[in-house]
Amino acid sequence: MLLTFDTATPRVTAALHDGERVVASADADVAMRHGEQLAPLIEKVLADAGADRFDVTAVGVGVGPGPFTGLRVGLVTARTLGHVLQVPVYGVCTLDVLAAQAVGTGEVAEPFLVATDARRKEVYLASYDAEGNRVEGPVVVKPAAAATDALVVGEGADLYPEHFARTAGPRRPSAAWMAVAITEELVGLLDPEPLYLRRPDAEAPGARKPVS
């Protein structure tokens, strides 16, 4: 079975797919609590499906882009589980998961963008064709610089209605859709490496300041 999860947005989402269909999924939408919620959610989807850890044959994880601290919770969990269970770990761009859902449900049937909250008054953004194939991005940008009349999927659009007037489709990613997208090859697979898109905030200290 394919176990999927994503921690690149305020939502923590986990799902289990048996090759035919999604057999269990669970979401938690309490921001800033990714580290507390992910492991219990994984436990829950396994239990809900009547499965145990030995039934997991592959792991899929959202590699962002997304706020770093939460993003790493998903990635380190995926890599470590993959190592312990000796199963492959597939990375998926989180924005691609939103795109796959938007197209897959029929909510969007024209070229569109996906935007999620990058904090610091910026959004993570990527553009897609009408079939949900990524055309450009992902990038991190100021909403004003990306203002558009195109349809925008994802919560990033809701935060800046002045720049993203037309919105549609899912707001936050779903691990259930990630599982479907991986199984049905709707998304490209990546290494489980985080898409940070920003350098760490770090400044070398200046010259020593005198104390007297």
Binding site: R72, V73, T77, V84
Partner: peptide, 18 residues
């Protein structure tokens, strides 16, 4: 905080996987 979280998440994955 962010550093601790990486270790805690990894430890949970180990506990869960084992």
């Amino acid at each position: 905080a962010g550093a601790l979280l990486v270790g805690v998440a990894a430890a949970k994955a180990l506990a869960l996987g084992l």
